[in-house]
């Protein structure tokens, strides 16, 4: 990437910069896509906990397929939906690793529902970051398991008709019913205040793993401006006006002991 060649006048101190766990590789996401913010929050958590040298990330199928390029830590690609099974294998084989999966709604809540639910039910000691943007991004904006009633996608051109395709899956609410998970929460990154809350949640989800507390999942509501067919700023309004109405924010399960 380009070198920042701006002269910083004396007396100024850097208060915000790229986390060390992020590599120099530019993100491959579309302009305004929230994946980038969420990805940075993970890197900040890795930095803060000092775990870069023992972290293994699991890159999903979808827009984050290049995730392995963006971090300075070990990475593996998982088949669509299988990240929680792969994470189980990694963590059981080497419990000293800090393992996280990063999955979209199609990956985690459709093709990978079984793997997710059962990893949560077993209380597997890893961290899941679940990006819920209510759409399949990479393949061109098809209906996701989280697509809102009435939402237009390329496979619901008249809007999602619940009589035909049912209702969105509230994965976090479902997982919160299980006994084993340590932490299930839903966050958003549509403004700076919520980014701070999401940051704390992601940090907690990683810290839980370090402390051996078990399965932690942070669902993050996000935009897909390209497939919402909206400018990025307008797409953020979708989060507050539509998505958050169906997917309320907050902790769904916190097991502190």
């Amino acid at each position: 990437m380009s070198q920042v060649s701006v002269e910083i006048p004396p007396g100024y101190q850097k208060v915000f910069g790229r986390p060390r766990a992020l590599s120099d590789a530019p993100y491959t996401y579309c302009p305004g896509c929230h994946h980038g913010i969420i990805g940075r929050l993970i890197a900040e958590a890795i930095d803060e906990l000092g775990i870069q040298g023992r972290t293994v990330g699991i890159a999903p199928v979808g827009c984050s397929v290049f995730l392995y390029r963006f971090y300075r830590c070990d990475f593996i690609q998982a088949a669509h939906g299988r990240a929680c099974a792969v994470a189980t294998g990694l963590k059981r084989a080497n419990p000293d690793l800090i393992v996280f999966s990063y999955q979209g709604d199609g990956d985690l809540a459709a093709i990978g529902t079984a793997e997710t639910v059962h990893a949560a039910a077993r209380g597997e000691n890893f961290t899941v970051i679940f990006v819920n943007n209510q759409i399949y991004g990479m393949t061109g904006g098809e209906m996701a398991p989280t697509t809102l009633p009435g939402q237009r996608t390329v496979t619901t051109p008249q809007g999602r008709d619940v009589a035909l395709t049912g209702y969105p899956l509230k994965i976090s609410e479902m997982l919160a019913q299980l006994d084993a998970p340590a932490y299930i929460t839903r966050q958003s990154v549509h403004d700076a205040r919520h980014v701070q809350l999401a940051r704390k949640a992601i940090l907690k989800a990683f810290r839980n793993q370090l402390e051996g507390k078990g399965f932690s999942l942070v669902e993050v509501l996000a935009t897909c401006p390209t497939n919402f067919r909206m400018p990025p700023v307008e797409a953020q309004k979708w989060v507050t006006e539509k998505a958050m109405q169906f997917f309320p924010l907050g902790d769904l399960k916190v097991r502190d002991e």
Binding site: V56, A78, R82, A85, V86, G89, R92, N94, A114
Partner: peptide
Amino acid sequence: VFLQAESEVAAINMVYGAAAAGVRT
């Protein structure tokens, strides 16, 4: 480590993870 998975699909992907960690699986 012995683990009974929720499906054959999950079991082979657990193998994939454990193999990546470098152990015999």
